[in-house]
Design a protein around this nucleic acid. Structure first.
Lengths: 212, 212, 212, 212
DNA sequence: GTGTAATCGAGACGGTACGTCGAGTCTTGTG
DNA sequence: CACAAGACTCGACGTACCGTCTCGATTACAC
């Protein structure tokens, strides 16, 4: 899916890896600074020192380029998050969430994300590609964590894993995309804690859950 | 803020309300169908039977037009949500959330929202205008509900109202914008319930809440 | 043709002569400075302190306004030229031509003239109006002078008065419109002298005029 | 001056000569029919089957395009006029003038010329370009003819060649631009004859013009 | 080494929309 | 009625960008 060319029969001049990098870097920088709409392919080509045709040979649209650009820049996070071995549910979820929060916090990639989301609304195929690469992996790991928690009995069997996953990621994306408040590590900790504990302390009229 | 002209000294030909309506309706229809990027001002002018200059006289950008378009179409929901008088926290929160969910569910306004969000990332002033009209009112009502719940003792005093508000709205916006699953009434009920109850049933090692 | 309204039945508020003057003066100034194409009716209205509708009430197009503007500014010349009583053909023709040359020399009205000429090519009615006011009066006086000269025997009976008239005015308009050289009093004198005398000194084969 | 690009290092896709021709032809047809003001670049692009950007890439303004359009269409005349070898002054001048008259008579290029003249009044650089291509070549040949005639003694040494040239071309342009009468071959013959002979046959009261 | 088949740079091109401007008309209220 | 203010239509403007195409000039593997 990433490679638009079959790699088997090596004939002719091979693709220049140097240029691939130059394009991705140029695109990333421009996209962060001006957003998808504010970045022109001509500008990318210029900054990368590359002809426009070379870009289009490998990425069939600006959005696809942005997608891969973002993907590359998020690579580091995936590795960082792979270190597991936590014991409590909260720590496990934080181990998933915190690396992502740190990453989005100090990159200007939100505007790229928004552009991609917009394109995804118009193009179902693109939407699938996006979710396959960016959303599902993280959701899948959330699901696993939750399933194990259910098996352990930490989480009630009736809890819908999908809904719980949205409860985990939703608040983070919300702040990131709407920008009404910072989406930082502190917020992530509080949000995860609240999602686990729940907003209500006790049922109305009933004695408090924690026995106080 | 909504009125770009001072209304005091009535001089010259007054603005045509008929055209204002025609523009907003045409824009809304086209925006729902093709999204912000896929809607041209020429098309809006055409469909509204109005000249392009007339649109630009009153809305300085396509995004501003989209903003007002969406605002008008969300008017009904604000009134529907005003019927309060619920007793439990869950019912109160659902009374806030369900009208919104019903509205976004059967309108194609998500793509408009996305366009607006994108513009908001590029233009802080626009972002403020957007949040002032769309986000803050709903958040404020969530805050009030939560504050009253804290006073009643239904919610622990230590709960951060802002975070709780994100826990309420975040999952809904998440599904709406990412489209990985439907954002319908059923999801809203489950999400709200889970946000209130919390994901975890019992503290690790403690006996299960349901006594099993 | 100049008055778009019948002046007979005096009803309602009378036309403001003060505004008529203001419009003509504003238009003339702007037309001289920026030409027909570079002058907008809004600008004229602004400078004249008058509403655009007031202009259109009295002049149905920009070109018609320009025409009258030019007409007014050429009024003085017509009076200056009326002083006749010359004896020689050359003096008579110069009496026609020189006032015109002096006028066009120190006004920037050439660009107005060009705009009018352009409009005249597109609109035969306008062309007639233009020629009726600007060209024919001068031509008619040229014709009279020439006819009298023919009667006196100063000019051969076979000379075509129309062609002679073009020979008189053509070189002047040529320089004025093409601007390859100055159209000033000196040129007018030489041009008229040459038109009268003719380019050739002697018929080919005949003995030279100076006897050499 | 005609070539806006250096032709030396052939890099990138070469300019399409087919399109250049299509544009010039489309422009010429539209300009003849509707004049400069009545011809839009969109219309030219449409008729030529070419994008508007392609036109602007090579001609920075409509007027410049009109200039080249007219230049191309007047090419044939320049060649036709090159056949010289006349003996009398009148024949020599007619050899210069008649091809031009025939050309302007059966083409509708007058309105293009007027548009160009108007632009020339606003833009001295454009004026130079126009005169360099259209006026000077013909004037220069007139000058040569006259200079030779002076050397031969057919024309008095005191005759100002510039003025004589205006006397030759002025009447023709006058009729062409003002349209008060046809500018045809017959007029050209009469005008040239009269310019050579002069309007006056004899001085008033004197027996013969050349006998004074 | 020499085809051969690809990549690459440069830049022309079609198409679509942009936001602006100007001519001329129309609609109010005021004098 | 004349007029001021200014909203409105229509149509063209010149620009910008996307994505395609057409050249010639490079590579690098395969023969």
């Amino acid at each position: 899916m990433i490679e638009p060319r079959a790699a088997m029969p090596r004939r002719g001049r091979p693709r220049s890896e140097r240029r691939r990098q130059a394009i991705l870097e140029a695109a990333y920088a421009l996209l962060c600074e001006h957003g998808l709409g504010g970045t022109s392919m001509d500008a990318v080509a210029d900054r990368a020192g590359v002809s426009k045709a070379t870009i289009y040979r490998w990425w069939s649209s600006k959005e696809l380029l942005a997608l891969e650009t973002l993907y590359e820049s998020w690579d580091a996070e995936r590795d960082a998050a792979s270190a597991t071995g936590e014991t409590t549910l909260e720590d496990e979820l934080l181990a998933l969430v915190l690396p992502w929060v740190r990453m989005v916090a100090d990159s200007a990639s939100t505007r790229i994300l928004l552009g991609i989301l917009t394109k995804a609304k118009d193009d179902p195929g693109f939407a699938d590609a996006y979710r396959e690469r960016f959303i599902n992996p993280r959701r899948e790991r959330s699901r696993e964590v939750l399933r194990r928690a259910i098996e352990r009995g930490d989480v009630a069997a009736g809890v819908d894993v999908e809904v719980a996953t949205d409860l985990l990621w939703g608040p983070l994306y919300h702040r990131l995309l709407h920008g009404h408040a910072r989406c930082d590590e502190q917020f992530a900790r509080r949000s995860v804690a609240l999602a686990i504990t729940g907003i209500r302390v006790r049922a109305p009229g009933a004695p408090r859950r924690d026995g106080r």
